[in-house]
Design a protein around this nucleic acid. Structure first.
Lengths: 360, 360
DNA sequence: GCCGCGGCGGCAACGGGTTGCCATGTATTG
DNA sequence: CAATACATGGCAACCCGTTGCCGCCGCGGC
């Protein structure tokens, strides 16, 4: 009965609908793309025929003339990093609201892969959100010249940006540590290609000046738990009582590394992270961290992108900055007043067997 | 100097190249898509002109005639769930190997959203990997009729599938718990729309029969930490000494919930999860869990999809099944031999203040 | 010298919509 | 009632490659 069962692979086109509805193809086209341009009864009839035949407009064909694919690309540095999950959610929801589809690209922390992927995708999307791009400024500008681009977690002249208020976050963390009696903070650096890494360190320098806290930096390390564990090793060579890590994953790695070496967190060392990922709450001790409004970041960036696509110039003046807050948990505590107790376990470097290894 | 700086928005087409190289557009087209079909010197000249002009072939236009976009869609149930990160990596790497771009779609655990997104994307991709789809069997078959589809983590007649050996994983978990003296296992169920949820429960039923372990089920709960904490509440009403959770996130939630109520894991209750996400290793106690070869899943599924796209029928016979292994950590222990001690803390239900709350 | 064949390039017809412009018919206005 | 405006629909060109088919040319074989 349903005569809309066509040989598979034979897509229904506007021509089929036109024939069936006894109008010209252009009318069918207009019935969908500019309904106001056609008589409402005709439009309705066409819509019914289309429905019956199972017609779907072919986005590729449409894109060919309109050069609008209704897709945007979201490029993230590392899908393995849970920070991006919420950002993606925010972006995706905003895109869906605007009738756009999101193409997610995982750069795997690689400049090269990121460029290649962007290159490949650029011509298929109407705009791009670069979240924590690892590309060079000039590469980004190049891309921005060809398509609307919004950059997330990075400030860059002439390109619309949205960033979080990292300086304030760092400042709050430093104040918090200062109040606990720490007079020295070690920054454990993440990837040098990461823009926030630079700003966090500089902010700490600045905060240190004002608060009269000494600061130093070690690294860079990979922004992962493994990287944090490696940092812990290095920390043991140059002791510290307060550590600010580039991100939560590293902070967690640091906590684990230190614990394994017999160093007590927060008893001997206070650790602060960045991002407030879910795991920050489940690690023991709970991780004190600077929380960013992840979802809002993704959502704000893509909303801005959509307005640009719709022709707005995209205010490239100041970056849009989103507020952060310090989430205090149990990885920070008053500085151990007994220097004799603060170091021994650590100087001895007695490696304690870690938690049960993976046994198959 | 470089005359290839054209007014932005004016893309270079084969016609421009043809004009400049003094050949016909078709020759330019062939120079790229079938180099063997054109004289190698001519081809080289064309390539140089194209390079000079900055020509890039427009994938949309190409797709219009070839109906090949060189894109595949990867649909995942919930990007917030870390399990998918590795799957995505595997899929993406495999796709990149085959010169395909991956479009990631997050279904947000919603049947409706998933269908809508698939519907929207279907016509723009050459094939689809459905990882842990929440759609109905019939909806999936519908999609499979229009595009090559590989289903991940779900078995479905007439559609190529790749699954993990959950029955064996559950069996191993049950054996492990049995050896520790547990004679009763409670399964904490996840989403009913999740296929693995069903199979895990049935496998546990079966394993219980053979191993003479009693089993029961509670739930369903949302497959998140929050869901696990809710499950912990319910568990307190109907005590258990051994729990198998639908996934790691729930298991972690259960551990936290129980701890908060003063129940000791693994002293009073043993908890086993599923998936071996990173957090399983950082929670205290470390979570015993059934590990799946996430990366391999994504990679195998996509590779299979690519062969289907290249015309192979896609063996729809038996699903491809990937091996799992039990990772034993510290959340499982011998059953508490003292029933008097096994329940009191729990019957009393003294809610213990949880870890420090988020203080801004 | 004639024929056949292979290499190479061009023509033109797509693929599936979109849109500027024109033709027709009807409603509005003076 | 003529003149003008507007609503509606059709024609045809266009977007940018791809590809079937044909023609031209040079070469080797008989």
């Amino acid at each position: 009965m349903p005569d809309h069962i066509r040989p598979p692979g034979q897509r229904v086109t506007i021509y089929d609908v036109a024939l069936e509805a006894d109008v010209s193809p252009s009318t069918v086209s207009r019935a969908f793309s500019r309904p106001s341009r056609v008589n409402s009864e005709t439009a309705e009839r066409i819509r019914q025929v289309a429905e019956r035949l199972g017609y779907r407009t072919n986005p590729l064909a449409r894109a060919l003339t309109t050069s609008r694919t209704q897709m945007i690309a979201l490029v993230i540095a590392d899908i393995t990093n849970p920070v991006y999950a919420e950002i993606v959610r925010g972006a995706q929801d905003a895109a869906t609201d605007g009738e756009y589809t999101t193409v997610l690209i995982d750069a795997q922390e690689s400049d090269r892969l990121e460029r290649a992927a962007v290159e490949r995708t650029m011509s298929t999307v109407d705009g791009i959100v670069l979240a924590s791009s690892r590309m060079s400024d000039s590469a980004i500008r190049m891309v921005a010249k060809q398509r609307p681009v919004v950059v997330l977690n990075r400030a860059l002249a002439d390109v619309p940006c949205v960033v979080t208020d990292d300086p304030r976050g760092v400042r709050r963390a430093a104040e918090h540590l200062g109040e606990l009696g720490h007079d020295h903070i070690t920054y454990v650096a993440g990837p040098q290609a990461s823009w926030p890494n630079g700003i966090r360190w500089r902010s700490l320098l600045e905060a240190g000046m004002e608060l009269e806290i000494k600061v130093r930096q070690i690294g860079p390390f990979s922004p992962t738990m493994a990287g944090g564990e490696r940092a812990a090793q290095e920390l043991s060579a140059r002791p510290a009582t307060a550590v600010l890590a580039f991100n939560d994953q590293m902070a967690i790695g640091i906590i684990r590394g230190l614990s394994r070496m017999g160093v007590n967190v927060p008893g001997d060392v206070s650790v602060v992270g960045f991002d407030n990922i879910l795991a920050a709450d489940i690690v023991t001790p709970g991780l004190t961290t600077v929380a960013a409004p992840l979802y809002a970041e993704g959502s704000a960036a893509t909303r801005h992108l959509l307005t640009m696509i719709d022709g707005s110039p995209g205010h490239t003046g100041r970056p849009m900055v989103l507020p952060v807050r310090l989430v205090v948990r149990d990885s920070t505590a008053a500085r151990n007043p007994d220097p004799g107790r603060a170091r021994p376990a650590w100087v001895r470097q007695r490696p304690v067997p870690g938690p049960a290894a993976h046994r198959p």
